[in-house]
Design a protein around this nucleic acid. Structure first.
Lengths: 246, 246
DNA sequence: CGAGTACTTGACACGTTTCAACATCCGTGG
DNA sequence: CCACGGATGTTGAAACGTGTCAAGTACTCG
């Protein structure tokens, strides 16, 4: 299922969803040496302070970036899903400023920075695709600042769920509006800057309003328009090429 | 004072602080066609939804990115200071997801995307410098998510002040620990996700603790170590080449 | 002199956190 | 097979940080 071919196939699919690559670009991507690893849940992939020599490609599972603040609170900065290249940044920023951990069992492919820098030098289209990818990441961080800084609990949680569902749908991993979401309420709390208890009450409110159904790591959006409205969600910031066909 | 030469001089200074450029790179940057404009305070440079054909370089003054949420709250996403290239991103993300406005009178130089894409294609070092610049922006957004999401008012404001002072010092616009900060308390509130009233009380508390002195848009940090501690501030995320000589 | 903007203050309301207890599920070892 | 511990989710009550409202001060500029 994840032979070298299907690995680069997934990578090409991702890059093609972001930019336009020609035949030679695709061949160069196809030749990238990937090193496959399987990880359990709750394992660090790279840590704050590390100076890694490679970046990773998430083939399956879910991961997240986070920081620990002085008082011991953990702030989740973003969720990463299948098809993401979470730490492309490390090819140009020597020291990591946050930690990337798995949330569920993950299959990960590593690529040496050397190989990435080489393909960027030789295939400008590929370099631009990578750059554009990191710019979309930045756009998502911007939206999170706005989400955490200016929405109340209900909107904050609804907005986050809208983002996750949109992104999961975009990579084809949702069946209509049902998707796997291996995220605990505590993790949702760390991502939204709320307490676990309050996230729990907020989810109950979303359920009572018949917007979502969430059980056993499986989220179903019952009322997409309603959830978007509750979360004040506008997908522009995700910069998807094909506007989501919702 | 801002002849074409000194304009590209400032730009070269910025890029050299971020990456290593050779002679030919510098010549290419020097030849970039810049279009100078002076703006008053509180003017939009580019707006959410725009699809601009050019990016800008901030020669003097202060600007900020922000988003307006559904309920009418304004969330400031970042502050931009002299020497910054705030909207490099727009060369690869067609539609802007937020608005860039001046906070004070600003001198701005515009560069057509065409010219930027051209220099990126011909001078990979320059492209990498631009890319790295946008990655540092992203690192700052990440830190803001953590700041707004997981610190209380006092730490939040202190952290923001630490960041601003560090960045202003890095471009040589501070005299020891005194710098111009043309930011109102309302703007600080929009940046930290607090109310104006509470920012006011928080600043009073910082003053009472003899950490800062702030009057008439001029900030003096009286106790840098103390302010860093109050804001739980670690400058790693700014990814400065020369660690700040504090 | 008047109007506008930024800052300041006090009292109260509200959203969210904290604490503590309890329920439920699941895998593991006895 | 059942008992157990640990992680996850749920609930209620009280405490706390921050927001809101409303009034007032200080300063700048025309």
């Amino acid at each position: 299922m994840t032979s070298p071919q299907s690995m680069t196939h997934l990578l090409l699919r991702k890059l093609n969803s972001i930019a336009t690559l020609d035949q030679e670009d695709q061949i160069a991507v196809d030749r990238l040496p990937l090193q496959l690893t399987d990880l359990k849940a709750d394992q660090d992939i790279v840590r704050e302070g590390d100076r890694p020599m490679r970046s990773c490609f998430l083939l399956s599972g879910m991961a997240c970036w986070f920081k620990l603040t002085g008082e011991g609170r953990r702030q989740i900065l973003s969720f990463q899903i299948s098809g993401d290249l979470p730490d492309m940044q490390s090819i140009h920023l020597a020291t990591l400023d946050s930690t990337l951990s798995t949330l569920s069992p993950c299959r990960v492919a590593f690529v040496q920075h050397e190989a990435l820098l080489d393909i960027c030098a030789k295939r400008p289209n590929v370099a631009n695709a990578f750059w554009r990818m990191t710019l979309i990441d930045a756009a998502i961080f911007r939206e999170w600042v706005a989400n955490v800084g200016s929405r109340q609990a209900l909107g904050r949680v609804a907005h986050l769920l809208c983002e996750l569902v949109s992104r999961i749908r975009a990579v084809g991993l949702a069946d209509k509006f049902v998707c796997e979401l291996p995220v605990t309420q505590t993790e949702l709390a760390d991502a939204t800057g709320l307490s676990t208890v309050h996230v729990n009450r907020t989810l109950q409110s979303l359920r009572r309003q018949n917007l979502i159904h969430w059980k056993d790591s499986q989220l179903e959006v019952l009322d997409w328009a309603g959830l978007q409205e509750a979360g004040d969600f506008d997908p522009t910031y995700l910069h998807m090429r094909t506007s989501p066909a919702f």
